[in-house]
Simulated assay, not measured.
Amino acid sequence: MEVSLLSLVMGSITSATIGAAARLGVADALEDGPATGAELAKTVGADPDALESLMRAVTALGVFARDEEGRYTNSPLSEQLRTDHPESIRHLTSLLCGLYAQAASGGLTQAVKTGTSVMPHAFGVSLYEYLEKDAETARIFDLAMQDWARPIGAVLAEHVPFENVRTVVDVGGGNGALLKAILSAHPHLKGVCVDRPDTCRRAEAGLRASGNEDLIERLSYQPSDILREVPEGGDLYIIKNVLHDWSSESGVRILSNIRKAMCAGADTGSTSKLLVIDPLKEHDSGAAFRNVIKMVVGEPNTLERSEADIRREAAEAGLQVLSITPCPADLSVAECVVAESA
């Protein structure tokens, strides 16, 4: 199929249009059935004429649909923009089409010239500094990471042997979506979610508000700067979609801190393992664009890692990679143990 340059350039407008529909919650508003543009506008709190223009655009893209009476409905694509859909990417769409797109449009050219991260050029601060100042964007970011974690969480819960595991520590685990999937499937487990203080604070409040007494009892949040230290006490450590946002030097530092935490249990007879879950060149169909996303929000000098890179960084951190397995969502799982020479 022939693609024109203009159609590619217009992609930013297309992305912004879908992102606005996601942010407004249009798919949720249509969950109970068709609605006119005016009815939708009232439900989502928008200007009727402006929303009509937006809906005509997203319908033309096939993201939503329109019935014979001119009412808007969800389509197979827009169903994934529903908050309660099992494969929802509503908040991930809001993040990618919102903050990330704004940052790229405002600072990508300068970042490419200088080889630095986009965020400081676009907003004057790093991603995490920005999130600390913008509570609503921080909330969307947490939920977007949940959307990203959901598919791999189900895979791990089903395929990883947890019989001899008591405590799982998720390093950089966001709001704990991955651990929630694992703990829900394995009632004997406890989980510790490690992340920045503000992320842990929001996540803990959200968990308590959920009223899920079982998870409240078994899931805890521990603020930590993973470049400095990682909590001890885990039988299984997981780090998912974290390393690709950091340079090789920082990645080795993070892995070294995890290895130190794993070694802390050696005196009690515990033999901890680590699962490094990240996109790797050999198994990542979206590597080209993922590298641009890393330029937008990651540390300078972050590039897509290969299997050889992961093995090298693990070895420098005192870890041995036992196996690397491709998984859904273009991710790979590297199973690691503490190296005998460490």
Rank of each mutant, 00 (worst) to 15 (best):
L6N: 11
S15I: 08
A20I: 05
L30K: 03
T36S: 15
A38K: 12
K42F: 04
P48Y: 06
A50H: 00
E52P: 02
R56H: 09
A57K: 00
E69T: 06
E69F: 01
G70Q: 07
Y72S: 04
T73N: 03
N74S: 09
L81Y: 08
L81E: 04
I89M: 11
L92I: 03
L92Q: 13
G98I: 06
Q102W: 12
Q102E: 15
A103V: 10
S105M: 13
G107N: 06
T109H: 12
Q110D: 15
K113W: 15
T114H: 14
M119K: 09
F123T: 13
G124C: 08
S126C: 05
L143G: 04
M145S: 14
M145K: 12
A149N: 15
V155N: 09
P161H: 07
T167S: 06
H186P: 00
P197S: 11
T199W: 10
R201W: 08
L215A: 08
L219T: 06
P223S: 12
S224G: 07
Y237W: 07
I239M: 11
E249V: 09
I254W: 05
L255I: 01
I258M: 09
R259M: 12
A261D: 06
A266F: 10
A266Q: 11
D278S: 09
P279Y: 12
E282Y: 07
E282H: 10
G286A: 13
G286R: 11
V292I: 15
E299A: 07
E299S: 07
P300Y: 00
E304S: 13
E304V: 09
E304K: 04
I310R: 02
E316Q: 13
G318S: 04
L319I: 02
L322S: 10
S323G: 00
A329W: 01
A339M: 01
S341M: 01
